[in-house]
Simulated assay, not measured.
Amino acid sequence: MRIARFSIDGNVAFGAVEGEGTPESGDLVLDIIKGIPYADHELSGVKVPLNKVRLLPPVLPSKVVAIGRNYAEHAAELGNAIFDEHGRPDVPVAFFKPSTSVIGSGDSIAYPSFSSDLHHEAELAVVIGRMCREVPPSRAKDVIFGYTCANDVTARDVQQREKQWARAKGFDTACPLGPWVETDLDPTDLAIQCTVNGEQRQLGRTNDMVRAIPELIAHISEAMTLLPGDVILTGTPAGVGPLNVGDEVAVTIEGIGTLTNKVIKRG
């Protein structure tokens, strides 16, 4: 099931996306959900055309936990090692993106005034469906609500200059998510693509992850409690590159859909 969060006539609701096509095509409708998607809920039977509503970020996470260097070719393109001196995999590199960085499909990415080298990073995002802690890899599927597209927008010059990533990856609008959450999906071998103004920049597959999703969930939940709606970004394939004011960047993931955002000058 594809579950979207949207606003219409000043009201915010969740709905199940029905039909095929794009959010703009007029071929999709939302069956409004009664209740909260993470808990017991049912479809109301009240349907609205998707092109008549405003799509919002599909979740409002208490936190976004992102994983760096989870695709070997991307780590190599930035000159980062993913193995220690003995040839063993290092522990996953985890960092936070605040909830204030989250925007939805169709929202604008505001180019931060303190950067001159903004980059796109297309990623598969995991949405947590229940409160959990210390989840073993074998139980990871039990705590997953679904999957969505993400763009880990990064001020690359700030990241390199400051040596830690809070401002570089946590500024307002730095975490586009959407367009909806797909709850019925096998994430092990999906195509991930990023285009800028229609030109392909990134193309990879999730089976190239250094560490699979169950391992990431186990690693993160060993340290902290995850709540319904929390998001885990699973890393980006090679091909990251610059974004400029006026660019339209799109992240497409097989089986989910396309997340599209335009870059504007920060006001």
Rank of each mutant, 00 (worst) to 15 (best):
V240H: 04
V12Y: 09
G229A: 06
L216T: 04
A212Q: 14
I144V: 12
L203H: 14
A66D: 04
S113L: 12
D27H: 13
Y71M: 05
T225Q: 05
I109D: 06
L233H: 01
V196F: 07
A150K: 01
A94M: 14
I213D: 01
T225H: 07
A155C: 05
M1N: 12
V93C: 14
A94P: 09
I192R: 00
L124R: 03
L190Y: 08
C175T: 07
A223Y: 13
C175G: 08
E162L: 11
G19W: 12
A150I: 02
N151H: 05
P37L: 08
T252H: 07
N80A: 15
E123N: 05
V48L: 12
A125E: 01
I33C: 05
D152S: 07
T234I: 07
E162V: 04
G21Y: 06
A75R: 00
I3Y: 07
L118Y: 01
A75I: 01
G26M: 07
P61Y: 10
R156E: 08
T100D: 13
G255C: 09
A81D: 15
I67L: 13
G246W: 02
D31M: 03
P58T: 00
E85K: 15
L203M: 13
R5N: 02
C194K: 01
T225K: 04
P136N: 11
S62Y: 13
V91W: 15
V181K: 02
G10N: 09
F83L: 15
Y71Q: 02
A174Q: 02
Q164G: 11
P176Q: 07
Q202M: 11
V46G: 09
F6P: 01
G35P: 07
S115P: 00
A174G: 06
A168H: 04
E248P: 02
S101P: 03
S221E: 02
G19N: 10
S7Y: 06
V245W: 01
E123W: 00
G79T: 11
R69P: 11
Q202K: 06
E199G: 03
P23F: 06
R205G: 10
L30H: 03
V231L: 03
L243D: 06
H86L: 14
A155H: 00
L190M: 11
A16K: 13
H219P: 04
V245I: 13
L226M: 10
V17M: 02
G68H: 04
I67M: 09
R201T: 07
E73D: 15
A4K: 03
E123R: 01
K97A: 02
A39M: 13
G146H: 05
D9L: 13
D107I: 05
T154P: 12
V251R: 00
C132T: 11
G35M: 10
I220S: 01
T22W: 07
S62I: 11
C194E: 05
S115Q: 00
V29G: 02
R54P: 08
G106M: 04
